[in-house]
Design a protein around this nucleic acid. Structure first.
Lengths: 141, 141
DNA sequence: TATAGTTGTAACCATCTTGATTACAACTAT
DNA sequence: ATAGTTGTAATCAAGATGGTTACAACTATA
């Protein structure tokens, strides 16, 4: 099972907003044509990013604008904004048998290691900012 | 989206096999009652673990037995054995627009960071062995 | 050899999540 | 007043998951 593409869509969306903010009105249609998904998908993404305080979206008039500096937006922040994972990354079987010594203690034994793995992933995402991506992008563009 | 419980089921399954190998015949029914899932789910898990060379399963007679030493089985090995994630952990939107400077370069900019995050998670799983879990379990049992 | 217990696997199902899409009310710049 | 846009509900098809039934094939044992 994979982590939903909402995450990469959101990153792409933010890059488009921050890169084109001067030249274009970054509407859901505009962004959708770069990401190549349905505009409604982008509007949902924009909603999440707005709720997270990362961008502002102008109702009626249209267009998304940055609220935070690109240096202060980490991939982790985007990842949580679009609810890729709610709570634990690893699913756990529901009801291990408490009558069995293994079933009774499986959570005690395993939970911390799963949490460590999830934290390692999240820390990596915390180490990359939107500004980092924009720097890389500027070299390529 | 979360990582399938096949992983925790497989870890639980292996713990049951390694812990009870002397006292019980570890059949799919026996393990299923500890994990509390359908025996067929356990048989599917056993198939995967067997294909990965971690255990041996006796057809007909019944019961699973260890092939490798618990010290040599990492959580990562179990994780890959049951195909929790095929290839990339992060889904990527299919066809970013190559006509757009952002769409054209989004993979170049983002892929390595996603790979780093996935690697961080996997490395964490590589650092824990079944023997580690058994040690913790012995203290609790 | 006959039997009982077990594995391996196919088949089917209900549920959930996802992303696509249509539709439309509400809003705003011009 | 109009055209363009957002916000959001509703619906849909597709895919993954885990549960379950069923049964052929196999093996230890009596």
């Amino acid at each position: 099972m994979k982590i939903t593409s909402r995450f990469t869509v959101a990153v792409h969306t933010l890059l488009a907003i921050y890169v084109f903010r001067k030249e274009y009105k970054t509407t859901s249609d505009f962004i959708a044509s770069s990401v190549n998904v349905n505009p409604v998908v982008i509007r949902r993404t924009l909603s999440s990013l707005k709720a997270a305080g990362i961008i502002d979206v102008k109702v009626g008039c249209g267009g998304a604008t940055p609220v935070k500096d690109a240096d202060d937006i980490t991939l982790y922040e985007i990842y949580t904004a679009v609810d890729c994972v709610e709570g634990d990354l690893f699913n756990f079987h529901e009801k291990p048998n408490p009558e069995c010594p293994v079933g009774k203690n499986i959570h005690a034994v395993l939970d911390s290691h799963l949490a460590d793995a999830q934290t390692a992933l999240e820390n990596e995402l915390k180490g990359v900012t939107l500004a980092d991506l924009m720097k890389q992008l500027n070299i390529l563009m």
